[in-house]
């Protein structure tokens, strides 16, 4: 296959990955890894490099819109970024000593978990009284809704911080945004309304991914020939996805994609188990 043909096919594949990532809320990066490894038989390390770039691009693009709407809790994001960036650097360092098959199995497991998280019951309630630490770190805030500005407080700051460190490690090790773990920490543990937790998680993904991306760039994980079609394709797909989401409620689509992605996750685990990476 010539470079031209390879690039065009990869561009189309990355566009679809960006679209699916956006419609399911999983993010573009997470769909790129199985696409590159299972379909194109590219070494998983190149796939991780490309996926990190896709995560940075899509999360920064989406964050720019959310931040302007004032839903994102910038202080909370900044505070938790201490945990995710430290975790990401640890993850990127562990990655050198982790066999690629183990990484593939771990990736499959996280992908299954993420797919399950997207169809969970979402936390709509704003907590009225938070913990001592939420006040100390000025994490309580308010966000605009249809019925006016709603104040919220949060609790279990320590537990949330710990899960965020784990999310960072996974992000650094696997090259994904680990949005699902971030939302688990904020939504389920700290009791933040899901609109705030999803936008704040998205806000943090770029910084978390960049923390490990600088390490991976210097290790040669980012190949220009792969990065070029993947970055442009995923951005295009995510853009189309955002446009579609404004017009349709893709509930059925989301279930279908989540089922499909679960199969992909199982295939990653199966192949990793049989040492095919």
């Amino acid at each position: 296959m010539s470079i031209l043909a390879f690039t065009l096919i990869l561009l189309a594949g990355a566009y679809l990955a960006g679209l699916v990532g956006s419609l399911t809320g999983l993010g573009g990066g997470v769909v790129v890894i199985p696409l590159l490894t299972l379909v194109f038989h590219i070494d998983i390390r190149y796939a991780i490099g490309a996926a990190l770039l896709a995560s940075i691009a899509t999360s920064s693009g989406a964050a720019s819109a959310y931040v302007k709407e004032g839903i994102t809790n910038i202080r909370l994001g900044m505070f938790l970024e201490i945990a995710t960036t430290i975790g990401a650097v640890i993850g990127a360092f562990i990655a050198v000593y982790t066999p690629t098959n183990t990484i593939a199995i771990l990736f499959g497991a996280i992908l299954l978990f993420s797919a399950a998280m997207t169809i969970r019951k979402k936390n709509q309630e704003a907590l009225a009284v938070g913990s001592k630490w939420s006040v100390k770190f000025k994490l309580n805030s308010s966000y605009p809704t249809k019925d006016g500005v709603v104040p919220y407080q949060l609790n279990h700051v320590g537990a949330g911080f710990s899960i965020m460190t784990l999310a960072g490690i996974m992000s650094g090790l696997l090259g994904i945004g680990s949005g699902a773990l971030k939302v688990l920490a904020m939504d389920t543990t700290m009791h933040i309304p899901f609109k705030v937790s999803t936008t704040t998680s998205n806000f943090m993904i770029g910084v978390t991914a960049a923390a490990s991306a600088v390490v991976y760039l210097q290790r040669g994980y980012m190949d220009p020939g792969i990065a070029f079609p993947v970055v442009l394709g995923v951005i295009g797909g995510a853009f189309t996805g955002a446009k579609l989401l404004a017009r349709i409620d893709p509930k059925l689509l989301r279930y279908l994609f989540c089922a499909a992605i679960s199969f992909v996750a199982i295939e990653m685990i199966y192949n990793g188990y049989h040492h095919q990476f």
């Binding site: 296959m1 010539s2 470079i3 194109f40 590219i42 070494d43 040669g220 220009p224 070029f228 970055v231």
Partner: peptide, 25 residues
């Protein structure tokens, strides 16, 4: 990335796909 990518295709688009299944680091 887009401009660089187009240049890349013009420079080496006809060559065979690099062996990406091998990690060069």
């Amino acid at each position: 990335v887009g401009i660089g990518g187009l240049l890349y295709l013009m420079q080496s688009g006809r060559q065979a796909r690099p062996p990406y299944h091998q990690f060069l680091g």
